[in-house]
Amino acid sequence: MGWKFQSNSPVYLQIASTIRADILSGKYAAEEQIPPVRQLAYIAAVNPNTMQRALSQLELDGLLYSKGTAGRFVTGDTAVLEKARHNAVNELLETFLQGCKQLGVTKDEVIQLLNKKEEMECQF
């Protein structure tokens, strides 16, 4: 039922990540209104206050802004979106590199593997 969450970090942060990804991937376009809190909470199957907290976090980050009772909208500020994207990619990279370090994979090996993958898929 609803979205899946990890045990080690607060649910509201994980929800924020998911919605952030939706925004960055374009599922929610710039200046588009996102569904109301209760609806999102129902879909995610979480407490509405938790969802509210997640959206407030995203407002703090500048990805969303609210028009009073009219609802919440995705920001049109491309600089903010770009920065968020940048941070998200860096986070992914960080996780990836940590994993590589644990396995003892060198930088050259990584580049080699990436090129091989590109060849096989032709499209990335």
Partner: peptide, 9 residues
């Protein structure tokens, strides 16, 4: 929800 942040559980 804060429990998860506080205890990681």
């Amino acid at each position: 929800d804060d429990i998860r942040g506080q205890y990681g559980k």
